[in-house]
């Protein structure tokens, strides 16, 4: 069931305006990367999209249904945070099974689903391990497996590889791309690393400095050479970073 994400005129103020007005649409199956200088509100925007925080202005619709507010949500959203947020007292398998509880499936199905997605994320054989016993990269894989296990309409990832070393980061980028191919999920991925975004996303949205608007929206379907794209985006982001530094030094 293909579901579209619509972000309409979303703005957010925390004492000062962080997000001015952002509107975009993500079609089912797309892999969108949200880029922008630090502090521009990318994480806030992602949290609003995920229904974790209410916008000050505008609204977000997933499959036509608002993501925020009380009341029944029929759409499923999976989130991979910067920290793995696994429960340390449960094994990797139990952590994934936990989020299947609200879906009302029986125990055997939960276990089978958990194992399937852990295997998909490259953790075959480690299902019975506790998070403290595996590496940071593996914990993030488990967090990804957990997000996928609910078979979400939308998968949100907030700089999930920030804490990993460069090699692991590269490996995980390739893994996420592979998982996206195999599952066809709609993904919105926040990062401040241009190279990462260009390597994995099908569409790139760059936010401006705070208070943010959309600075650039680019399709990454191979028409533009990667290197060119990276250079162009780097130039843009440097402008925005300087604008943000300038703004904060005069304010």
């Amino acid at each position: 069931m293909a579901v579209t994400l619509e972000v309409v005129g979303v703005g957010k103020d925390f004492l000062i305006p962080v997000i001015d007005s952002v509107s975009f649409t993500v079609e089912a199956g797309e892999f969108v990367c949200l880029l922008g200088p630090n502090g521009c509100g990318k994480t806030t925007l992602l949290r609003i999209v995920g229904g974790l925080e209410p916008p000050t202005r505008g609204r977000v619709l997933l499959g036509g249904e608002p993501v925020a507010g009380r009341g029944r949500h029929t759409r499923k959203v999976g989130v991979v945070f910067q920290e793995d947020r696994l429960l340390p007292w449960m094994t990797l398998r139990e952590n994934v099974e936990l989020v299947l509880l609200p879906l009302g499936v029986d125990a055997r199905t939960r276990r089978a689903t958990a194992e399937r997605y852990l295997r998909l994320a490259g953790l075959a054989g480690f299902e019975g391990y506790y998070p403290a016993r595996v590496s940071g990269g593996m914990r993030q894989r488990a967090a990804i497996a957990r997000a996928l296990a609910i078979e979400p309409d939308l998968l949100l990832m907030d700089e999930p590889f920030g804490a990993l070393d460069a090699q692991n980061r590269r490996i995980m980028q390739a893994e996420v791309r592979r998982i996206w191919h195999e599952t066809g999920r709609t993904i919105v991925f926040v990062t401040h690393a241009i190279e990462e975004a260009v390597a994995i996303g099908t569409a790139l949205i760059m936010l401006s400095a705070r208070p943010s608007r959309i600075r650039a929206e680019v399709r990454n379907d191979g028409r533009l050479a990667r290197a060119t794209l990276v250079d162009d985006l780097n130039a843009l982001i440097m402008e925005e970073v300087e604008r943000q530094q300038g703004a904060s030094s005069t304010s």
Binding site: G78, V79, L101
Partner: peptide, 15 residues
Amino acid sequence: RLLEMGDVYRLAGRQ
């Protein structure tokens, strides 16, 4: 943050 993760995945209060 763990409680928030629980909210994201729609865990009931008792869960």
